[in-house]
Design a protein around this nucleic acid. Structure first.
Length: 112
DNA sequence: AATTTGACCCGTC
DNA sequence: AGACGGGCCAAAT
């Protein structure tokens, strides 16, 4: 038997996204062992047939919904995200604040 | 077969 | 924040 197809790995990575949390296409691709294949992830999402697939937890790297504002997918995704407690604002998801660099902590404002 | 398209990403300005 | 260019890969034209 051959190895699992990339599609299966991508689907698995998407299913692995915890409820109430989101992930970027590139992030999913990387978790699926396919770094740089973000577009492939998008294609797979467009071809998905599984109703239980949390496709709505996948966003752009900017934290924005990949659908055009006002589109059906856009509203559905934003609504589903809000249903999980994700804060969606103007088609954009408030992502987790990145950890500050050590230099910033040491040499930041007030360190002088 | 070449070009365009698509639920994209990253570094740089 | 937004704009630009390069990368990536498969389907559609």
């Amino acid at each position: 038997m051959t190895a699992k197809s990339s599609e299966q790995r991508i689907l698995a990575a998407i299913r692995a996204i915890p409820r109430g949390q989101v992930a970027g296409y590139g992030e999913v691709a990387q978790r699926a062992g396919l770094p740089g294949r973000a577009r492939l992830v998008a294609r797979v999402l467009g071809n998905h047939d599984e109703p239980d697939l949390p496709w709505y937890r996948v966003l752009r790297s900017d934290g924005r919904i990949a659908f055009p504002e006002g589109s059906r997918g856009f509203r559905e995704q934003s609504q589903r995200l809000r249903a999980e407690g994700v804060r969606v604002e103007n088609g954009r998801v408030r992502r987790v604040k990145p950890a500050p660099d050590l230099d910033e902590a040491l040499w930041g404002p007030g360190a002088g």
